[in-house]
Simulated scan of single mutants.
Amino acid sequence: MGGWVTNTLNSLGYIGVVWLTFLENVFPPIPSELIMPLAGYLVSQDRMTLVGATLAGTAGSVIGALLLYGFGRWFGEERLKRFADRNGRWLTLSPRDIDRASTWFEKRGLWAVFICRLIPGLRSLISIPAGIHCMPLGRFVLVTALGTAVWTGALVFAGQQLGENFERIGRWLDPVTKVVLGAMAVWYLWRVIRFKHDHERSAHG
């Protein structure tokens, strides 16, 4: 994959950054931790600019996030409730939980989107609940762009400073991604185990 990313950036430049970061949001196996530090290396070679690479990476990520947001908006809260009513345990959600989540998202959704755009493993996923809970599109685009610009700019700058050693960034961040995904898996299993007990208790309480 690294060779394909390198060839794409070398041949397409800023357009390649936009394309790859769009794909990275829709297909997470393509990591921004590889794309943007490589763009930073190209900045160190005067083949891109720091601002240009950051803007291109941000644009591609926002486009990809909009696609996931649109899916969440299309799926919708009511459809999610019906799905939860049939498959609540495996989804670890009940219709009542979804109502609570909607209330929470209305109050804190902006911060949730911004912070998650800075966390490997959650950067793409947060766009779906934002769509499901109908976060206003303008706010979603603004906070997604801001969070993405911080993340993208940091990776480009680090790649620029490391030069030919830019691949170290991916190795440094890989354990963080694994910890986040592992924590999500443990949390999900705990929710599945506790789901029936918690909801039976609430039904009798």
Rank of each mutant, 00 (worst) to 15 (best):
I115L: 13
A203P: 04
L67H: 01
L173K: 01
A65S: 15
W19R: 05
L137H: 00
G109K: 07
P28Y: 03
P175L: 00
L34D: 09
R47I: 08
A154D: 09
R191H: 11
L125I: 14
A183F: 09
P175C: 02
A53T: 05
A59N: 10
S94F: 00
L91G: 02
V186N: 10
R117D: 11
A158K: 02
W19Y: 15
G16C: 11
W90D: 02
I193T: 08
F157E: 12
M184F: 11
V17H: 08
V26R: 00
L110H: 05
E200W: 05
R79F: 04
V180P: 06
A39S: 15
R191P: 06
P129Y: 02
M48R: 11
V62A: 04
A185G: 04
R79N: 15
V18K: 03
A149P: 12
V180I: 14
T49V: 08
L189V: 14
S124M: 05
I115N: 07
G60Y: 12
V113Q: 08
V180N: 02
T148K: 01
S32W: 10
V17N: 12
V5T: 14
F105Q: 01
W111P: 07
L50T: 14
H197C: 03
F27R: 00
I30C: 03
F114N: 12
G52E: 15
V113N: 09
Q161D: 07
F105Y: 12
P136Q: 03
L12H: 14
V176Q: 07
Y69I: 06
G182K: 00
S94A: 06
K81F: 07
S102W: 02
R168I: 09
V179N: 04
L137I: 14
V143M: 01
K107Y: 09
F71W: 11
Q45V: 03
T177Y: 02
R191V: 06
S44F: 08
L50C: 04
W19A: 15
Y14K: 08
R139A: 13
D198Q: 14
D97S: 10
S11Y: 05
